[in-house]
Nucleic acid binder design. Structure first.
Length: 269
DNA sequence: TTGCGATTTCCTGCTT
DNA sequence: CAAGCAGGAAATCGCA
């Protein structure tokens, strides 16, 4: 096939709509299925390549989403509010803390963060032919960790491709659907510049405060500069039939999450 | 290449 | 009148 050069991470100058949201919600990174597995797959998922110790709260939250996604676990199965912390705090948690905070999923999260803390990935190194010295300041022990990490990556990839072919179909990675995009804005008040607001948090009722701004942001995510609230709302209305949203009549710009919308509740034990 | 899901685009008509 | 809301119909796009 034709191979196009996709320039998707263009950094646009600040506009009135520019917000912290856009800097971390870049477009999904395209990739082709190369060899057997992809090198550094895990690290590639994180747009923030910084060390977890320096993550912001939002990055921690993003990491949670990614880990849950990789392991095909529904995001609503763990209480995200237990991870309302920045990277420094996250890194200070021990194994039992993770179990306490996330139950059975705790060990997965613990393994992931331990892995990320232990080594800096080098995506340029192919795991099947790792003949590059890792980092300047890491002799023997760290080198071993490096290979262990790469091995874990391979395992993740295998697990992932296995899941892909044998488990529940998953058309899009988490966060690419409109309702998830909306939900994620709602769930990050500190990064939500008054775009959408909860009307009834426990009932899942919310209202657009800046409808066109949200549409622009959505358009930006989809690389569609001509997105409007008019068109976005049509997509929202399609969700009624699928019960991802419930109808709220009489109130303009107000919607409500339906039974098929996941991960918006604050505490479901 | 085809099929399908999830929008995107456009539109007519109705409501606030 | 300007925004929203309702849906139908058809076009797109990415992915399997």
């Amino acid at each position: 096939g034709t191979s196009e050069f996709i320039c998707n991470m263009s950094i646009t100058p600040s506009t009135t709509l520019e917000s912290p949201l856009t800097s971390t919600w870049g477009p999904t990174i395209p990739y082709h299925d190369g060899p057997l597995v992809m090198p550094g797959y895990t690290s590639r998922l994180w747009s923030h390549d910084s060390q977890p110790q320096f993550w912001s709260k939002y990055q921690v939250w993003e990491w949670l989403q990614q880990v849950m996604d990789i392991h095909q676990i529904d995001a609503s199965s763990i209480p995200f509010q237990n991870f309302d912390m920045d990277g420094h705090q996250l890194c200070s948690l021990n194994y039992h803390d993770f179990i306490r905070a996330a139950g059975s999923v705790g060990h997965i999260l613990y393994n992931s963060i331990t892995e990320l803390k232990s080594e800096i990935y080098d995506p340029s190194v192919h795991p099947l032919a790792p003949n590059v010295s890792p980092t300047p300041s890491s002799p023997g022990k760290k080198k071993k960790m490096f290979y262990a990490t790469q091995f874990t990556c391979i395992l993740s990839d295998i697990k992932r491709s296995f899941s892909r072919s044998h488990q529940v179909k998953k058309h899009n990675p988490r966060g690419t659907h409109l309702w998830e995009f909306i939900r994620d804005i709602l769930l990050n008040p500190e990064r939500n510049p008054g775009l959408i607001k909860w009307e009834d948090r426990t009932e899942g009722v919310f209202r657009f405060l800046k409808s066109e701004a949200v549409a622009q942001l959505w358009g930006k995510k989809k690389n569609n500069s001509s997105m409007t609230y008019e068109k976005l709302s049509r997509a929202m209305r399609y969700y009624y039939k699928r019960e991802i949203l419930e109808r709220v009549d009489g109130r303009r710009l107000v919607y409500k999450f339906g039974r098929n919308a996941r991960g918006w509740r604050e505490a479901e034990k």
